[in-house]
């Protein structure tokens, strides 16, 4: 499961570098998310712009990742491709995660509201 991670201004910026988050990689995704974020304390922005497919197992892993951060840290999403966005809306999970069109917008929105 290829994911890149970067700290920037107290934020964790995570990018999934895989085309699919599905049942075959759901556990790896959650484990990798945990490894990359467990030592930080700030909010996390997850860039999904390279992910063109998310099934219900992948969605479950995304929710599991959200829980790993706890209520004190926020997980924001950006770069949802059409199929990923469709699954998020259909399952109402778009009400759980703040969602931004892309990373630049996500960072600008945070800067404007902080």
């Amino acid at each position: 499961m290829k994911m890149s991670f970067e700290h920037r201004d107290g934020l964790g910026l995570l990018r999934v570098e895989e085309p699919r988050i599905d049942a075959s990689v759901a556990i790896q995704f959650k484990d990798r998310f945990h490894d990359l974020t467990q030592n930080g304390t700030g909010d996390v922005i997850l860039d999904l712009s390279q992910v063109d497919f998310l099934d219900s197992s992948g969605l479950g892993a995304l929710v599991g990742a959200r829980k790993l951060l706890g209520a004190g840290r926020v997980l924001e999403l950006c770069g949802l491709t059409p199929t990923v966005d469709r699954v998020m809306v259909l399952t109402r999970m778009h009400t759980v995660f703040p969602i931004h069109p892309d990373l630049v917008t996500a960072l600008a929105t945070r800067a404007a509201t902080s």
């Binding site: 099934d55 219900s56 969605l59 479950g60 892993a61 929710v63 599991g64 959200r66 829980k67 706890g70 209520a71 699954v87 259909l90 399952t91 109402r92 999970m93 009400t95 759980v96």
Partner: peptide, 21 residues
């Protein structure tokens, strides 16, 4: 769909979406 309360992080459903989708 499984019950969903966006404010209850610990209680978010991690499954039960398959048939609805």
């Amino acid at each position: 769909l499984p019950p969903l309360d966006p404010g209850d992080i610990a209680g978010l459903p991690e499954g039960g979406f398959g048939w609805a989708i």
